[in-house]
């Protein structure tokens, strides 16, 4: 199973090519295509710069991974059965 997973990731990375359009961006383009007169009626109060966005996504993944590791460790060592400190 690990082999299949790795093969799939490699396949996706290898076939991706240079510019990756996010599907939500493509969906917005589709909306603008259909209804050129449509104006977005709200905009984010702030948006991170592209590098900042990548960083914040990485932060989300990092926070998730730390929590995942922490609680898996609790389950593994059986500390999960102990009352919370």
């Amino acid at each position: 199973m690990l082999g299949v997973t790795v093969a799939l990731v490699v396949f996706l990375l290898a076939t991706a090519g240079g510019n990756l359009a996010g599907t939500d961006g493509q969906a917005v383009a589709e909306i603008e295509d259909r209804t050129p007169a449509y104006d977005r009626w709200a905009a984010p109060v702030w948006a991170p710069a592209p590098t900042g966005e990548a960083l914040l996504f990485a932060l989300q993944g990092g926070v998730g991974a730390v929590l995942l590791g922490h609680y898996l460790d609790r389950l593994r060592t059986g500390d999960g059965d102990a009352p919370d400190a």
């Binding site: 996706l12 991706a16 090519g17 359009a21 996010g22 998730g64 991974a65 995942l68």
Partner: peptide
């Protein structure tokens, strides 16, 4: 945490798009 990690991944996919 699994949801947090996976939804943070922006994965390349076929046809030059990512999701």
């Amino acid at each position: 945490a699994f949801v947090f990690v996976l939804s943070a991944l922006k994965l390349p996919s076929v046809a030059g798009s990512s999701s």
